[in-house]
Design a protein around this nucleic acid. Sequence first.
DNA 1: AGGTCGAATTTGTATATACAATTTCGATAA
DNA 2: TTATCGAAATTGTATATACAAATTCGACCT
Lengths: 253, 253
Amino acid sequence: MDGPPPDHVPTRPLYARVKRTILDRIERGDLNPGDRIPTEHALVAETGASRMTVNRALRELADEGRIHRIQGAGSFVAEPKPASDLMELRNIADEIAARGHRHDMRLLTLTERPAQPEEAARLGLRKGAPVFHSVLLHRADARPVQLEDRLVNPLVAPDYPALDLARETPNAYLTRIAPARAVEHAVEAIACPGTLAEALGLAPGAPCLAVDRRTWVDGTEGPRVASVARLIHPGTRYRLTAGRPPTDRVSPL
Amino acid sequence: MDGPPPDHVPTRPLYARVKRTILDRIERGDLNPGDRIPTEHALVAETGASRMTVNRALRELADEGRIHRIQGAGSFVAEPKPASDLMELRNIADEIAARGHRHDMRLLTLTERPAQPEEAARLGLRKGAPVFHSVLLHRADARPVQLEDRLVNPLVAPDYPALDLARETPNAYLTRIAPARAVEHAVEAIACPGTLAEALGLAPGAPCLAVDRRTWVDGTEGPRVASVARLIHPGTRYRLTAGRPPTDRVSPL
DNA sequence: AGGTCGAATTTGTATATACAATTTCGATAA
DNA sequence: TTATCGAAATTGTATATACAAATTCGACCT
């Protein structure tokens, strides 16, 4: 049985399909950064959509930073800028997906072991207390974009080792079972350690962005550190942004 | 007197003015989170704009997360976004002093010149509009810790060149005369350019942390970019933190 | 009372048209 | 050759109109 009218695959709006055709050409390398995009008029002729619809598609692409438009001159493919908005709020998988890439992760290690003294201090535990330690590699379209080295507090997330990585990132899991009350970030530029160079697909010594993130949850006796993570990104491939510009536009003066 | 034809104050587009009227009501507390926004039809009657124009205004507000729209139901003021915008970058002088070092700065260049196209875009000015450009080196105990490359909008800070660097940093000066309404940060790891290696006391290619900071102030016609700065720190000597851990401590478990 | 259906409301998308603003580029004049 | 002007090309905004899709709400029936 089943199905009656399979029918209506929810058709995407026309402006979205026009956007997609442009993005396809960019992602296939058919159009490269700096290249000129067909004019609205040409796209009207090509796609059959009205100019208003084509205009909306191109305007949204411009808002999203994928293309650059100059009145009177034309539209051009923008330089790829892997800027991520508010990384502390969205997990890396969402960010990659939002850019139209395919995200996957490979678990490199997952162990339970006693905390080293410094780790214990960072986690607010006694030294030697058991902690979970995971190391993952996040990839976008099979390209490494983040190495995640994480310590998890078993008092906050006792079932962390049972996490199903096929369905959820550690960040998403922790957010779900123990929403953070506070987050601390520290960022520094480092030279890619030789031990990570291969995993990240970089030359040893290449500049990398290291983000140390610590999250707290509310416990019965006060705030507890839920997790401490060091996230390492290839410096030239990733960008961390915080803060948002005002929304309403103003004409240039 | 006055003016003849004051002439053309560049009128903002109608859809932007409609956005502004809605944002004003939200920011004045006239409309609170969860409140219903007048329907498109009502806004058409109120503003005189066409429904397509009102629709664009509301759609952009929704894209920007300020409102929430439900087909068939209406439009509603969104919850203010998670406050975690806190990238409290204290100014470099305070940080150095807080660490017990002595801060000084050397002015490398200070000019007024026409904005390059890309710079103009970042500043929200017409290309070729005059901008102030300063380059400073901040030092802690005579050791370089930050190279500050800054563009300043003369419309916001016309007296910037008169700044007395012996008394104030550019950041402190701008904060004093034009408090920022919004700040945007982008951070990336870069290899130290050869041209800066000597000034920063580094080997070319050494990892550096580059922070791009953009600040806005409120103008009569809407937000204006006050300044765009790129701050370059030797990666191993500097650390940038954002977010704050909870203040109340708990004994380790 | 409860449920069902359908009309009214409201937002979402699409088009045709018009004019404005900016850049580009060629024609023309000095 | 150089400079200037203007037409053409291209994007930006605005409107009127139409229909689609989702929700709300009341009328009506049982």
